[in-house]
Design a protein around this nucleic acid. Structure first.
Lengths: 193, 193
DNA sequence: AGAGGATATGAACAGTCGTTCAATTCATCT
DNA sequence: AGATGAATTGAACGACTGTTCATATCCTCT
């Protein structure tokens, strides 16, 4: 007994990642079984292993793709620190609003990564944080920003911006442009001299 | 076969909650088995059920106790909005620094609560958020604060402050008083007119 | 000394877990 | 038409899951 329909090799892979993403975000990595993912895709559990070596890699690939995409799309203008910071904030919020499930997983499931995978993801995360801290330090040096501690300010800003995903829902009271503007205003005031 | 030593009724209960707290925080609720918790306490799995009706209640009780404690200890001075906001921020940071594992669980394991338990926890969380939003609205009314949106500012401030637990480690570069002061400075600037 | 209750054990239950693999089906190519 | 190989099934593996319960032990009270 095998396939009931034609071949689906090109679509099954992405559909597995989509289902895993959705289910991991909803119930958590540990609470989701390979059989649940398979059912969602409309396939038997064994078939998943044609597309991923194991469950752990399924999680790791989702997280790595997310962080590489986040880093790759961060384009900062060759401008003053304040303009760079604005670009960073708007990029961060926009990206997070567009991919709530990926963002959620990348933060929540860190502890379910095996040692080597965890280190790789953490390295990417630090790269991203460093981009922000570099901006803040430049602003300190130029006198544009007044910060007691650039590392702490980095973490505070990222936490604040990422928090948008705890409440923002598409079609709500505020548009994405509103949200960007309001958050940027608070960040600007918090760091400005 | 049964107990090897004397009775431990008064200590076993708390030790189970401690072990559950630590293990849930480290590996996640779904990834921790009752047998792991029992092993940590030095007891067989069956004995856990003398102290909790089931695993779910173990989680729920931890989260409820945490939020009730957080709310119960929030004493705001009868003063101007800025002084109230400072008290709120310092309380929040202090509380979070002191109980990183409880805070972590209360946020991360929301999705593992059954419907009724989830609603109860969410109600407590909203109560806490409302305390902050009330301060912010008062500041808006008095002209002390300049906020585009008090609800959004509430969420932004809480996210920023809670983020302290992603990086703060006891005995690190900054003292708890330093951290409180730096965060409060950023919040004050972000909301001030 | 003996009874009674609180505390704990350890085996058992039925179910689920991630993963493997021989067998099977289908599309494509010759 | 027949062969090839990719795609998939479904059964099976041993291990582990939360929970229950008869049984056993120890402390306390009489």
């Amino acid at each position: 007994m095998a396939r009931k329909q034609g071949s689906h090799a090109e679509t099954t892979g992405p559909r597995i990642r989509d289902a895993a993403l959705r289910l991991f975000a909803q119930h958590g990595y540990a609470a989701v079984s390979m059989r649940q993912i398979a059912r969602e895709v409309g396939v038997q559990a064994g078939a998943l292993y044609l597309y991923t070596p194991d469950k752990q890699t399924l999680l790791y690939d989702l997280m790595r793709a997310h962080l590489e995409h986040l880093l790759g799309h961060l384009q900062l203008p060759d401008a003053a620190p304040e303009a760079q910071l604005e670009a960073f904030c708007r990029h961060h919020i926009r990206y997070h609003i567009d991919r709530p499930e990926l963002v959620f997983i990348a933060y929540m499931e860190l502890r379910n990564l095996e040692t080597g995978n965890f280190a790789a993801i953490e390295a990417l995360r630090h790269q991203y944080e460093d981009r922000l801290q570099t901006i803040l330090k430049a602003g300190q040096a130029s006198g544009d920003f007044a910060l007691a501690d650039s590392k702490l300010a980095t973490m505070a800003i990222i936490a604040m911006l990422t928090g948008v995903n705890t409440w923002y829902r598409e079609g709500g009271r505020l548009s994405r442009a509103d949200v960007e503007a309001i958050y940027w205003d608070m960040v600007r005031k918090a760091v400005t001299a």
